[in-house]
Amino acid sequence: MKKLLRTLIPFDIAKGLSITGTYFVKVFLTANRAKVKQHVVSEYPEVPAPLEPRFRGRVQLTLDEVGDPKCVCCNACAKACPTGVITIEGGKKEGRKTRIPTRWDYEMERCVFCGYCVEACSFDAIKLNDQFELAAYDREDFSLGLHGAHNVLEPSPVGKFSYSDEA
């Protein structure tokens, strides 16, 4: 008899449903009013995603006071890179003691964003910025360099298809 009752009245399913119900009522009653946010889903494309300070985004070169790249072409980052996406050629510049890169190529399509290059650099010449919307239609958009269409110094050569840019 007890078993039949248990089969007829689904207490077990009601137990699970009550959890969903609790959350539903909580959010329903406090929507737009609560000081404590009840919903968990972020409105990402409309509201930019919050990032941690240590976020590992795209490689970007840092500049010195004169506006030249700090890079001294020691090739430490290129050696540390697991996928070998960095190619550096050094040259000279009037009034600068260290060498200056004439070519600094970064092929982002193979980059794994591990941050080993930043750790290898002793001159703080390289950083991983906070860009993560890096999709593009053209493969060439991923080849970044010092001179040319897609500059590795600029913050946003690719990622132009992100929603937040259009808005």
Binding site: F55, V112, F113, Y116
Partner: peptide
């Protein structure tokens, strides 16, 4: 994960 090492899934 992200606050510690900067990456969410492929942590290294």
């Amino acid at each position: 994960n992200e606050s510690y090492c900067g990456s969410r899934l492929t942590t290294t």
